[in-house]
Design a protein around this nucleic acid. Sequence first.
DNA 1: TAGTTAGAGGTATAGACCTC
DNA 2: GAGGTCTATACCTCTAACTA
Length: 302
Amino acid sequence: MYNSKMIVKQLGLSAGTLRAWETRYGVIQPVRTEGGHRLYSDEDLADLRWLKMETEDKGISIRHAAQQLIKNKALQAEALPLSSYKTPEPKAYFIDMQNNLYAHLVDFDAGKSNALVDLGFSMYQFDDMFHEVLVPLMARVGDEWERGTITAVQEHFISHFVQLRFAQFFRLFQVDSTKPKVLALCPSGEQHQVGLLLFSLFLRRKGLDVIYIGADTPLEGISQLILVKDIQFLCLSLTNPKRLKAGLSFIGSIHKEVPEVELVLGGKAFNGLPKGHSLYPYVIGQSMESWEMWYQREVIKT
DNA sequence: TAGTTAGAGGTATAGACCTC
DNA sequence: GAGGTCTATACCTCTAACTA
């Protein structure tokens, strides 16, 4: 449970705004301590985060966003027998959502797709939604595109949709200026950035100031950026093993100019590095657990 | 077109109460 | 006891609708 101060810090909303949303629209009903102080649950936090995203990113009025949230919750409640109401079994729900979302996206129906994702975010932790729905969705889109069952236009549309969702969350987390700065990018030629996005979101949630450059980043200017912005960690993602040689050359050039920057390497290509390779110690895994271990080992120690 | 009004939404303040 | 949080209320800004 969270008190008002923690909610204000996490979301950047004022305490007055929180109370106004509660009393005017009834969208959240925090429990109270014996003394009457509000205590917010994880669900309250998720709801508030969703409302903030709807109002600030989409420009929807708070009244309408609140109505939509209440409607979404009511629809979900209706779908289940009242006597046995509980949050749907996540695994089955995520698979179902992924299938429905895929169908809407290949049909270029952004409205239905957004509504479906909004509903998911109002019910589950955003980590679960990204890991269980959006990331597998992107993997599936990549496979379908390679098989030729969807067009390049569909692939681009879906990628753009998912990236927008990442970007919305990215802005919501407050930066802790006492924590190290991070530069995140994919070397030139690398187009797949979902893993990098996810890791950047993980870091941003921890309060790190992440400068996200994204896919297909040229070498020019990177070293200067690291020096000017006092970057401590350089995160690189590379999925295509065929581009590993070029990727290593990319890293070598940067390391030559700024040897003090600490490397964080992720993606299928780097995961294939042999144990004896000099860069092997900088490769992190693909699971949240391995990221958390890296964070505790490399960031908390600083 | 410009002024007025009303509503929506956010913020500030005061005083009382609660927590640590 | 200091600092945080509460409720209630007033005030501010912005926008849209209305009117002369």
